[in-house]
Design a protein around this nucleic acid. Sequence first.
DNA 1: TTGTATGCGTTATCAT
DNA 2: ATGATAACGCATACAA
Lengths: 343, 343
Amino acid sequence: MATISDVAREAGVSIATVSRVFNDSSLVSATTRRRVAAVATRLRYWPNGIARSLITSRTHTLGAFLPDLHGEFFSEVIHGVDLAARERGFHLLVSRASSGADELTATLRSIRGRVDGLIIMAPEIDADALRRVSGSARVVLVNPKRPIPGLGSISIANLAGARAVVLHLIGLGHRRIATIAGPERNTDARQRLEGYRLAMTESGLPAAPELVLHGDFSEHSGYEAAGALLSLNPRPTAVFIANDYMAVGALGAFHDAGLRVPEDVALAGFDDIPLARYLTPPLTTVHVDMLRLGQRAVERLLDAPRPGSHAESHELLGTTLAVRKSCGRNGDGARDRERPPAG
Amino acid sequence: MATISDVAREAGVSIATVSRVFNDSSLVSATTRRRVAAVATRLRYWPNGIARSLITSRTHTLGAFLPDLHGEFFSEVIHGVDLAARERGFHLLVSRASSGADELTATLRSIRGRVDGLIIMAPEIDADALRRVSGSARVVLVNPKRPIPGLGSISIANLAGARAVVLHLIGLGHRRIATIAGPERNTDARQRLEGYRLAMTESGLPAAPELVLHGDFSEHSGYEAAGALLSLNPRPTAVFIANDYMAVGALGAFHDAGLRVPEDVALAGFDDIPLARYLTPPLTTVHVDMLRLGQRAVERLLDAPRPGSHAESHELLGTTLAVRKSCGRNGDGARDRERPPAG
DNA sequence: TTGTATGCGTTATCAT
DNA sequence: ATGATAACGCATACAA
């Protein structure tokens, strides 16, 4: 590959001039510029990004760390991040963030200097560790356990979304509403459970302990939990399930038990994975705009005036209610907007 | 951030020695090594990857260019690429490859020097353009229009997969089998259509022109094409559809027309997107292991002895048949293996 | 408007 | 076993 000196020599100028041409400096005469450009084209020269980064200490690259790279959920986040990053001329370094905080910090350390900013979706990350390894890169946390002072973060409005869908169920006339919550230590799961409780309480409905079951967000655990629900007496007439994958499992369990959805039992999920609308019946669920989540993360990372400003605050991404058939009635495509987020 | 000189100064050694410590050179005494390591830890020093890359001209980074970053299909490829890359200590730079060959070459040029290897899934890419912009990076093409001499490539065994599923349909007793093919100029679509024709011909079945319809791989176009199929007389008893998204649409069309699947008409797809098994009825389809596709691409990129070897050949990724309910009979989970790839 | 020279943080080469 | 010093390819302060 040709270097800047090759071009300089061929064009009969100094490397400084070549550099100026490629950095759109106004300090180059039109004639020189043309000559240099011509030589560069002939030699197929293009500035080496690595060398550039070394001296400018800017890489025009963003790092994105997600718990998983597959699944309908995270692929949407990546897509959003890519859209926003590309719009700003940034490249994207992606990596899986799972398998423990230690491995994550090791990876983070190894890419220090290779990225200008970091989007991190890893609930278990430790605030101090993060500060130690992030170097000079800006950081935005996605869905952290709790906001970390001094760092920007963005989360899904879990509580408001869960509350809205449970109120929807209540509005449909249901009184005995169960929930299949996520893992007890998972933040999203907790907040969604809070939303369920809030909706029940403010509607004067008892949230009996027996109505609250826990799964691990997997389809299988949804199947199991739904089975347990069947033995309740009286049986709940509706179930709010903390994520769509578990809802898929629950749907299977009810189907296997010969129950009709929504006639015998109504079902609502959370996330609105693409699959949700293809289920039989199509699943009513809380729609989370993952693409937007990715975009917002980038925006907050790159569009902030400077470190130390308002950027380092917590932001909530609102949800909407995707009303389909699994709760019965009004499921003909109408869309309820959720109420303003309450947390 | 501390640099190598900071550590050297504090430890009372030269920068060369510090470098040796971090590169596991045997030319350092145990005592010195310990002292340097201690200082490095205290100063939180870690070698700057950019500076390292500049002199070694190795980045330990792979570039992956895909037509789309979302969708159930490509997210699996990325996942596979990530798994294999991480296993070898490589980072991953991802980017969307769509929106024209020009934009792609521009992006490629701008990351030249930032990656050691390139995985490119972009049918429209021009061979010469690719050579011009790839620099010293190795390249593996995924699903190219046709193999490019001198470059490694890997494709899905479209023809064999399509042939296998159509033979499956024939084995089930179907004689009048239609197909909804993909876009006429799309390579995957063409090969899958060829597979359909091959299976029909070798079974002595007429592949009447009226039995071949074209969609654009979208759900909607599948719906439309299936509608057109309904007016055929006699109606086909089975349909092979060139991808699962169109099969979803076709399923909807048959449902809307009051036809039962598989009793009135059998349906088979291609790709085996995660959604396929959740449809009603679950879709029989050609399973493509996208994760493996991503992994193989990385393996061929990084595990090749050296440029110029056998690595620069074309490889076919075999498919399997996922037999579910949409074709009737034997749909109880049994799995037919496809015959050895014929193309 | 252009050129010279320095430095970015590291590894590699040659001494010692 | 260790140290000086020259690259790597570029941007930029300073000189001209």
